[in-house]
Simulated scan of single mutants.
Amino acid sequence: MRIAALTALTTFGLDQASKIAVVQGLDLINRGQMDIWPPFLTFRMAWNQGINFGLFAGQTEAIRWGIIVVSLVISAWVWLWVRKTAPGRWAQISAGLLVGGALGNVIDRLWYGAVADFLNMSCCGFENPYAFNVADIAIFAGAAGLVLFTGKGAGPQKA
């Protein structure tokens, strides 16, 4: 459980620190875009009112609050599952990534009304139109890790 908590806290801190540094500190909120290492890394300000790739985006407060509630319910469920089942080290890390990332995006929705996305990466002739953030990476990695590191054959271990 301690591993999950430390991972969640670290993930949340890195997400929020990166958003403060880039969105506020580098004034990306007003500049809109900064080429860091083109085309591999560009800071491109985007406000995501929906979930991944802007799905369910809308101007209504009901959608915003619905996403907040769903994020909190999933985070609480994952947290309780970790406490109850005492999964192995990698499953705990995965759970911490998912919870820390989800809570980072919840804070954005509460503070800004939308998630602050700013990372844009392209490569090898592929122009990526989407922006994302540290929390998005953590949520994806955490969900993938929970699929890979839990279930049959991934019995409980003390970490």
Results as ranks from 00 to 15, higher is better:
residue 137 I to A: 14
residue 20 I to L: 08
residue 138 A to Q: 01
residue 109 R to T: 00
residue 31 R to I: 05
residue 47 W to I: 04
residue 59 Q to Y: 05
residue 2 R to D: 13
residue 35 D to V: 00
residue 21 A to Y: 13
residue 112 Y to P: 09
residue 83 R to V: 09
residue 136 D to F: 03
residue 26 L to Y: 05
residue 120 N to Y: 08
residue 102 A to G: 11
residue 139 I to T: 00
residue 78 V to L: 05
residue 18 S to N: 07
residue 4 A to K: 01
residue 4 A to C: 15
residue 72 L to M: 00
residue 40 F to R: 09
residue 143 A to F: 10
residue 41 L to T: 00
residue 47 W to D: 10
residue 84 K to G: 05
residue 7 T to R: 00
residue 64 R to E: 06
residue 68 I to E: 02
residue 11 T to N: 14
residue 38 P to M: 01
residue 18 S to M: 03
residue 158 K to S: 12
residue 119 L to W: 06
residue 123 C to V: 08
residue 94 S to N: 09
residue 65 W to I: 12
residue 11 T to Q: 03
residue 11 T to F: 13
residue 43 F to G: 10
residue 134 V to Q: 06
residue 19 K to E: 03
residue 29 I to G: 12
residue 150 T to P: 14
residue 128 N to W: 05
residue 48 N to I: 03
residue 47 W to Y: 06
residue 9 L to C: 15
residue 22 V to K: 11
residue 58 G to S: 15
residue 139 I to D: 01
residue 15 D to M: 12
residue 84 K to H: 04
residue 39 P to Y: 04
residue 78 V to H: 01
residue 34 M to I: 15
residue 133 N to S: 03
residue 145 G to H: 13
residue 56 F to C: 05
residue 116 A to K: 11
residue 75 S to R: 11
residue 144 A to V: 05
residue 69 V to C: 08
residue 121 M to R: 02
residue 28 L to I: 02
residue 7 T to L: 03
residue 22 V to D: 07
residue 20 I to F: 08
residue 106 V to Q: 07
residue 13 G to W: 14
residue 23 V to N: 07
residue 119 L to I: 08
residue 143 A to I: 00
residue 48 N to Y: 02
residue 48 N to S: 01
residue 139 I to N: 03
residue 128 N to Q: 06
residue 67 I to L: 15
residue 89 R to Q: 11
residue 68 I to L: 07
residue 120 N to K: 08
residue 94 S to G: 14
residue 14 L to Q: 09
residue 36 I to P: 12
residue 152 K to V: 06
residue 118 F to K: 11
residue 143 A to C: 01
residue 8 A to K: 00
residue 119 L to R: 05
residue 105 N to P: 11
residue 115 V to P: 15
residue 77 W to D: 07
residue 92 Q to D: 08
residue 4 A to F: 07
residue 47 W to N: 04
residue 17 A to W: 14
residue 54 G to W: 00
residue 51 I to S: 10
residue 2 R to N: 12
residue 61 E to K: 09
residue 36 I to H: 02
residue 126 F to E: 08
residue 69 V to Y: 03
residue 17 A to D: 12
residue 137 I to W: 12
residue 136 D to P: 04
residue 1 M to R: 04
residue 128 N to T: 03
residue 34 M to V: 12
residue 110 L to K: 13
residue 61 E to Q: 09
residue 67 I to F: 09
residue 151 G to L: 07
residue 101 G to C: 07
residue 148 L to R: 14
residue 95 A to C: 02
residue 102 A to Q: 05
residue 72 L to K: 13
residue 34 M to S: 11
residue 47 W to R: 12
residue 147 V to F: 10
residue 56 F to W: 08
residue 49 Q to L: 04
residue 153 G to Q: 14
residue 121 M to T: 11
residue 128 N to A: 00
residue 99 V to N: 03
residue 8 A to G: 13
residue 151 G to E: 04
